[in-house]
Amino acid sequence: DLLEAVRLLDQAVARDPAFFDAYGELAGAQDRIYFVGFDHTDARLQLSEAAIQSVRRLRPASGETHLVLAQHLYWAYQNYDRAREELAAARLTLPNEARIPLLAAYIDRRQGRWEESLDQMKQALEFDPHNLSILQQTSLTYQALRRYKETVATLDKVMAIAPKDIAIKVWRAWVELQWRADPSPLHATIETALTQNPKAAPYIVLQWFDLVFSERNPAAAERVLASMPAGGGYDENIPFPDSWWRGLVARLRGDEPAARAEFASARRELERIVRGQPDYAAALCAIGVVDAALGNKEDAIREGHRAIELIPVSKNAIDGSRMIQ
């Protein structure tokens, strides 16, 4: 919960204005809120910049400061060249820090340098072999390459470290659906997970939606809707409000008037977001998807083209390809 993290970190630095590590974590949390679209506004970016200024003030030349700056340049500005410069400076005093090759891997991945990204992740794992985040990111990279055998093998390593992690279990079963078009492992895993812990439902709704749509099961889709957190969900960092998901379920059960009403509501909500954040490519992409569902073909194509202009594949191999899809 990034917003809760910001609240607690704000309290920490208020009590101790010299708490260097807290300022670094605060900048990172603000950057991620901005990056993933929870709040893609200049005001959020300025909150991150304020934390960065405190980091620089407290330890202007430390390796940790260079690493925090590299992360900031990556998440907030997608300035990969400058981020690499800061990583090189950080490496001089932090030669065994796993976060340095990990961030280099993120940059390589965004630039479409997939094999180089995997090499950097392997180096990060040499420094910290039981780091769940590095293993999960390695899995995501294999998954993006459709190298499902390696994806599953890496997720098995994650599960060996965290055998009770429901989200990882569901993720692994979801990969089986993508790989073999077999919904049965995901179906069994989700039902078992919800029986053991009904409160886990909000954390697995996107995979659950994939399952019920692949099985064409309207009744199960209604169960997923009831479990969705307020505000909708992010599909690969693309924001879709509650009404979008309600529209999909209405269409699945054959209620086209209800589906169109929900899609129209989703479009209005996304329009409000774009009015305040006109260069927010993910929201523009979402409007295009909604317009396509409404049959507004020309509008959908125009909005899709604008999203691709803002995040071309040449600049961002991950999100740019999602815009095209």
Rank of each mutant, 00 (worst) to 15 (best):
D235E: 15
E64G: 12
L155E: 04
A51H: 07
A22C: 10
A221G: 01
D108K: 07
P185I: 01
L186S: 03
F263G: 04
A18T: 13
F240A: 01
R44G: 00
T41Y: 01
R147P: 00
D42K: 13
W245Y: 15
N131A: 08
Q207H: 12
D39M: 07
A153E: 14
I308V: 11
E271P: 03
G112H: 08
D21S: 11
R146Q: 11
A230Y: 12
A14S: 14
A220F: 00
A104R: 13
R223D: 14
T189I: 02
A173P: 02
W179R: 14
A89S: 13
L118D: 08
P101C: 00
R84I: 06
K164R: 08
R15H: 01
A88G: 10
A167P: 00
I318F: 11
D16N: 13
R306F: 06
A219H: 09
L252V: 06
A5R: 07
L125F: 02
D242N: 14
L284M: 12
R7T: 00
I190S: 04
L155K: 06
V170Q: 08
I273L: 15
Y106D: 13
P278R: 13
A144N: 08
E298Y: 02
E85T: 08
I100H: 03
I161M: 03
G276L: 08
I204C: 09
Q46A: 15
V212D: 09
Q123N: 01
Q120V: 00
I100P: 09
I33F: 08
L225G: 00
Y234I: 05
K149A: 11
R56C: 10
A167Y: 12
I161D: 10
D182W: 10
S321V: 08
S227V: 02
T93R: 13
W174V: 00
P241N: 12
L132D: 13
G231V: 04
A5F: 04
I318E: 11
T154N: 04
I166V: 14
A307P: 04
I238Q: 12
A61R: 15
V290W: 09
A90V: 03
Q78L: 15
L87R: 05
G276C: 08
S117P: 05
Q53L: 11
A226S: 09
A70C: 04
A43M: 07
K149N: 07
A83I: 05
N197L: 05
Q196K: 10
R91N: 08
A219I: 05
S54Q: 15
P101F: 00
S227G: 04
T192A: 15
L186I: 07
E269S: 10
F240W: 09
R59P: 01
F209N: 00
S214K: 10
R59S: 10
Q53A: 07
C285K: 15
L58T: 06
D39R: 11
N131T: 07
G320L: 01
D210L: 03
A5H: 06
S133G: 04
A230F: 08
E222P: 05
V152N: 03
Y23D: 11
Y106H: 15
Y280S: 01
